[in-house]
């Protein structure tokens, strides 16, 4: 029996979000739904990275007065994944903005949000 830790729960939720996100992006037919699925997918990746940096019984990586440096070094959660996740949140927002802008442009042209109609292969 594996002991259930917060980290394990984080991995489980991350896996669920990634699977739901990818499935939504591939199988849902509405462009806005596809975009929402993408935000879920990027949330899942963020959660995976944060859970990776978790240290069992650790502390938030802020050096509080009174804590020795060696204790901090052994107990603090990892900070590098946090940097990656901050970048990923920014990238996720900009990608979403571009996707929404393109979806609006294509809606004006075709009058529908159905991916099967909008994205049908057509040469000029």
């Amino acid at each position: 029996m594996i002991e259930v830790t917060i980290q394990l729960l984080g991995f489980i939720a991350a896996a669920a979000l990634v699977v739901i996100g990818i499935a939504g992006m591939l199988f849902l037919d509405n462009l806005i739904k596809k975009i929402i699925s993408f935000t879920l997918l990027s949330d899942g990746v963020n959660l995976l990275l944060v859970a990776l940096g978790y240290v069992e019984g650790g502390v938030v990586p802020i050096l509080i007065p009174g804590m020795s440096v060696s204790e901090f070094a052994t107990r603090a959660a990892l900070v590098f994944p946090v940097g990656i996740v901050l970048t990923n949140i920014v990238i996720g927002v900009s990608t979403t903005a571009i996707l929404v802008a393109l979806a609006i442009m294509l809606y004006r042209r075709y009058g529908t949000l159905k991916a099967s109609k909008v994205l049908k292969g057509e040469r000029r």
Binding site: T39, G53, G58, I89, V93
Partner: peptide, 26 residues
């Protein structure tokens, strides 16, 4: 809960205001 409170703040702002805002605009 995963010891990243700064990310929690960022995610709360971005994920509840900015992202739904963009999508609602669309």
């Amino acid at each position: 809960a995963l010891l990243a409170p700064d990310l929690g703040l960022t995610q709360a702002i971005v994920g509840t205001v900015l992202l739904p805002g963009i999508i609602i605009l669309g």
